[in-house]
Design a protein around this nucleic acid. Sequence first.
RNA 1: GGCGCCGUCGCCAAGUGGUAAGGCCCGGGACUGCAAAUCCCGUAUCCAUCGGUUCGAAUCCGAUCGGCGCCUCCA
Length: 483
Amino acid sequence: MASRRILSLFNTLTRRVEPVHPLEQGVIRIYNCGPTVYNFAHIGNLRTFLFQDLLRRTFEASGYDVKFCMNITDVEDKIIRDSQAGLPADASNAERLVAMKALTDRYTAYFLEDLARIGIQPATYMPRATDYIGGMIAMVEQLIAKGHAYAREGSVYYRIGSLPHYGDLAHLDREGMQVGVSVDVDEYEKDSAQDFVLWKAAKPGEPYWESPWGPGRPGWHIECSVMGIDVLGERMDIHTGGVDLIFPHHTNEIAQSEGCLGHTWVNHWCHGEFLMVEGQKMSKSLGNFFTLRDLIDKGIDPLSFRYAIQSNHYRKVLNFSFDGLKAADASLARIRAFRRRMTGTGEVAGRGDWKEAVDPMARLQMARERFWEAMADDLNTPEALASLFTLVTDLNAQDDRVALTVEERQAVSAFLDETNAIFGGWAAEEETLPAEIEALLAQRQEARATKQWAESDRLRDVLKSLGFLVEDRKDGTMSARRA
RNA sequence: GGCGCCGUCGCCAAGUGGUAAGGCCCGGGACUGCAAAUCCCGUAUCCAUCGGUUCGAAUCCGAUCGGCGCCUCCA
């Protein structure tokens, strides 16, 4: 990469699209709120992780060394609820912790499998909350020492009134806020209803860690503050998550980290929008709640799901639908077909003059510029893809009349690689076909040479039933590809 | 009650002051033994509605209607 592109992103804190100027030359530090591993990730979760992947890949493709941290939350109320269900009342704490870990290990593995299937690259760092209990206790102690927190009956709370800019991220107006009606039974000892818990005293039957305040477990937000600082340092460029995390999670992370550090912690806050399903909120009761596995069971290619998500802007509510998935599949097929065409040497394409002939290299350059301009402008993927499709149409038309040269094809292929590095949907295919398929193709070739059309069609159907689509070419050769 | 987002072709969607990108689907044609792929032609005089500002608005302002989110665990 000759020069690094400056990328601009919407910053939740300022509500404006702003250029990202890295803290360290050429390096981008990103912290992503990862999953709470007590169940399979649903497609809404996956949308957020795809957004983070898009962000990471775009920076990498723009010449940055990306330090990408995604945490695994492996201690949390629902995890405790689900993991302790089968244990006897007198189970030891060690047994309780083991049961919890068994559950989170299992779902962490499933989670990583899902990410791999939709082409999400592994994070540079993947810290787990339970490996940082000591650090969390230390941070809580510091917050107490600095007057931001107070202990009450085995728990510790953050006094939000101690931080003047508390709530800035969510643009909360303390005056107009309507404090939740439901009050947690064990929250009566807080100084203020809005103070949040940093360390939670263990109740009987709950797994716990020892602490200066007695047995307990970390609160819901402290892990990200501790791990973020430990892994990426006292300042980072970008912190991401779903929009639902703006409040309270990220708001409270800021309170903890900045209360502790005494300075700005994160420069750029980026949030991915939610997903609706067929026009409705996704919920189990509506029967429109899907995991990636559900989609795979319906015969959907995980990469089509990836494309369907990435072809929409990350900051807009996306209406997930099976029609949309079909469209995504068709769009990908068009790009892949074009890629296959550009991979060939062009013997079968047109030869001759064309009054509307374009300069493929100039056209390619236009597409590349438009593509990156769109990506650099708050990850405008719909616009970036439009530039790609325009190129596909233009060069298909050109190649039909005036065959592109080998050099031109290679340049186009390189651009497809460049864009695929972000979208992950049209990787170069290797052309090797199973011997059995090659044999059937040869037979069909023979049948066609002798104009045995019925036999030719039969062989085409056989190939189709084996999952290979046949395309005949002008020069008499044919090709097959996996459907 | 407070804060905020969205409404562009059948579906998805870009564009946010200069005269409607792109994808899917659909119709017609070319190529093909038939297909597939591809190409050509055609599909919004109009951007929820009503007003206003402007030489000019989908783009700015106001109102209305409709959908959604946050203020409580949640991607």
